[in-house]
Amino acid sequence: MSYLVEDAPARRRFEILVDDALAGFTAYRPRGADVLVFTHTEVDPEFRGKGVGEALIRGTLDEVRRRGARVVPRCPFMAAFIDRHPAYADLVTATEEQ
C-alpha cells in the first residue's frame, strides 16, 4: 500500500490517497497565516483499521511543521494522535486567535 498526503486548500482539508484512491481527509479552518484549526478527520470504512488515519495525521503534521505553521487540534482523533506522539506537541497552539 502506498500513501500520499496532500493539502487540498480549496476544500480546506488534507487528503490521503492510498494506491491513488481517496481514503480519507482531515478538515481545517485557517486562522491567520500560520495556524490551522483541525475540526474533523474521516477515513473511508474500506481503509479503517489499516493505519490510514495515523498516516494521514502524521503526514499532515509533518507538512504543517515544514511550513512553520501551528495547529489547534479540535478534532479528537488528531488530539489523541498528538497525545500519543509527543514529538508533535510543539506544533500545538492553545489559541485560535491570530
Results as ranks from 00 to 15, higher is better:
A89Q: 11
L22H: 01
F38Q: 01
R70T: 05
P76M: 13
V43C: 04
F47I: 01
T41C: 10
L56R: 06
P30K: 13
L22W: 00
G51T: 02
R84T: 07
A89E: 11
D90T: 06
A69C: 14
I57Y: 01
L36Y: 07
G32D: 08
A87G: 15
P86I: 02
R11K: 12
L56C: 10
V35W: 03
G59L: 03
E42C: 11
I16E: 03
D90E: 12
R13I: 01
R12S: 08
A33D: 07
D44W: 04
G49K: 14
L36T: 04
E15W: 10
E96D: 06
D44R: 06
A8C: 14
T95N: 07
I16C: 10
E46I: 13
D83N: 09
G49E: 15
I82S: 02
L56I: 07
F25I: 02
V18W: 06
A55L: 08
R31P: 03
L22V: 01
T95E: 10
H40C: 05
T26S: 15
P9S: 09
L36D: 01
R84S: 12
Y88N: 01
G53R: 05
R13H: 02
R67P: 04
A87I: 08
T93R: 15
C75L: 13
A87K: 11
R67E: 09
A8V: 14
V18H: 06
L22M: 03
A87V: 11
A69V: 08
I82V: 03
V64H: 00
G68K: 00
A55Q: 10
A79P: 00
P30T: 08
T95I: 05
A33P: 06
C75S: 14
A80W: 09
V52A: 12
G68M: 06
P9G: 09
P9E: 08
T93F: 15
P86W: 09
A23T: 09
A55V: 00
P86N: 07
F77E: 04
A94Q: 09
G68R: 00
K50W: 06
R31F: 13
V35Q: 03
V92M: 13
R58D: 13
A87D: 14
R58H: 11
D34Q: 11
V35F: 09
G32E: 04
T93Q: 15
V52Q: 10
V71D: 00
T39Q: 14
L36I: 00
D19V: 05
F77C: 07
R29M: 10
I57F: 02
R74Y: 13
E54G: 14
E63I: 04
I57K: 03
R11W: 10
M78H: 12
